[in-house]
């Protein structure tokens, strides 16, 4: 079983890297992009014996304690 965690900056938090990527896309001639926000993707290989609902709760705790900084970041968990 895998947990896929997407960590993104909250709205209103400055993302200079996303801005730089946006500018680079523009200078390469890619039109039609309004905004770019950069984040992190973390993949966790979980023990298969773990029930799915417990797995989600556990990963949520991992995000709150370490994987994300909830002052500036949101996280989204997908168990598959």
């Amino acid at each position: 079983m895998k947990a896929r965690v997407h960590i993104t900056l909250k709205n209103g938090v400055l993302d200079p890297q996303g801005k730089a990527v946006h500018n680079a896309l523009k200078s390469l001639g890619f039109e039609g992009v309004d905004d770019v926000r950069q984040g992190k993707y973390i993949e966790l290989q979980l023990e298969d014996s773990l029930p799915e609902d417990q797995a989600e709760e556990k990963v949520k705790q991992m995000c709150e304690k370490l994987l994300a900084n909830t002052v500036i970041e949101n996280f989204d968990i997908e168990i598959a």
Binding site: V13, L14, P16, Q17, A20, N69, V71, I72
Partner: peptide, 17 residues
């Protein structure tokens, strides 16, 4: 200190990268 919540807020990458 901010990651430990001993002080409020967080640190971001410098504006000019």
């Amino acid at each position: 200190l901010v990651e430990s919540h001993l002080l409020p807020g967080a640190m971001l990458t410098n504006k000019k990268l």
